[in-house]
Design a protein around this nucleic acid. Structure first.
Lengths: 107, 107
DNA sequence: CTTTATTATCGTAATATTGCGATATAATAA
DNA sequence: TTATTATATCGCAATATTACGATAATAAAG
């Protein structure tokens, strides 16, 4: 017990849930907001800005990368993490599609 | 360690993350989709439809209620859980507002 | 009142997530 | 080469989530 039974749900349900799940942490929300404000970003800024340890920030960045929301480029000896706007717009469409189709026909 | 440091984030970040988090489970996505299809719903249907134990479904319903997405009315000896459309629309607006403001000014 | 049906809650085991120190890796600087 | 700086990964401890059986609570039916 304890493991999520992904096999009893369809792919769309699992993918949608995974997206929501990754967005479901305040640090990751804050990271996205901060990167957006900066127009560019290096991870080290985030450590000071957010107030979590460097290892923890790095882990959150990895999760945001896992759903394609962030892309990172090496820039000298630091990383430039940016929001992938195409992916961002696609995600927004997916979520809206879920919201719009699900509210239909409800009592 | 292990506990999310909600105190270092602001209220909006925590609330937004909480919404995403609750939506971040395939069973809860499936529950919302099923209720939407039915126009009404009793929990017992969900147990057969989703394929999780009754106790588990009940727990997921409770979480969806906790963010106001579902409202439940007693109907005879069973419950009628419905999507709260007003709340649903508000949530959708909140998420879109996050998506729209965050993608601005990004590199 | 007793039975039956439906949902909620409790307790618990299994697994996942969060956070961080320590360390590895990689690139530039001296 | 040897520092220095920035980021990633490993390993672990603390906490949270998921799932379910057992049981409680509630309401209708007999």
């Amino acid at each position: 017990m304890g493991i999520t039974k992904t096999q009893i749900f369809d792919q769309r349900q699992n993918e949608l849930a995974q997206l929501f799940k990754i967005l479901g942490h305040p640090a990751r929300i804050a990271i996205l907001q901060y990167i957006s404000k900066q127009n560019a970003c290096i991870c080290n800024d985030l450590v000071e800005e957010i107030g979590l340890a460097q290892a923890t920030i790095s882990q959150h960045l990895k999760e945001l990368k896992s759903i394609g929301l962030l892309k990172g480029e090496i820039e000298g000896k630091s990383m430039c993490y940016c929001i992938d706007i195409d992916r961002w717009n696609t995600l927004q469409k997916n979520l809206n599609s879920f919201f719009n189709t699900t509210k239909m026909n409800c009592c």
